[in-house]
Amino acid sequence: SPTCSGMEIELLAQDVLRSHRETSQPRAEELQQRRWDTFSREEVCAYQRKPMQEMWERCAGRLTEAIQHVVEFAKRLRGFMELCQNDQIVLLKAGAMEVVLVRMCRAFNPDNRTVLFEGKYAGTELFRSLGCHELVGSIFDFAQSLCALRLSESEVAFLCAIVLINANRPWLQEQAKVARLRGRLEVAFRLLLRRTHREGLLARLPPAGRLRALCSQHVEQLQAFRRLHPGALPAAFPPLYRELFA
């Protein structure tokens, strides 16, 4: 790019990887070791017997923890904290859940279609009492499709940065500044892919609309849950979850 130096791109790439490493839990090696540690039949049944409200609270709790890590990832990204505060909030409000969904592929075992949840790997059936079978299935399908790309940690890191720094989000005040940062991230990502002979990856990434659809589906299901359990949300859901989705 004529607008940024090679050194600048190099620093940005290092920064994306470091931000990702410092804010992704558990580490990749640990996930690899634990990927066959699944819930027993009895444990799955115990989750299935939980009331819908309790299961929603648990999932909202885990999701909120993941989102807090995404906020930290954003804060460490070169250039993010130089954006105006309105735009930081706009990008996180629109993109945090999408980043969590991308990050989820790290903790997903495509061989038995399970995901790390509260300490062990769980299949879709564990989430039955949530009452949103279709949404859970779609999220698992998405994780499965990302796993099929066999992404490296560096590729996950760049994908997350690119999902977050999106100049097309509505209500941005300094759209051009966000677009410039996004452009630099794309240059750095392409450079990484060229070096690792993975240029073909870009054409195989899921379309952005798929992430957007999953996030809308989550909000719709939350609204359906609230109609069933009016008053449940203020009491037991994390305040950050309510702020982002309610």
Binding site: Q68, V71, E72, Q85, I89, K93, P239, L240, E243, L244
Partner: peptide, 16 residues
Amino acid sequence: QEKHRILHKLLQNGNS
């Protein structure tokens, strides 16, 4: 900003 009080706070904190 009042509507996004917690997000605002997380962004303000050095390390949250």
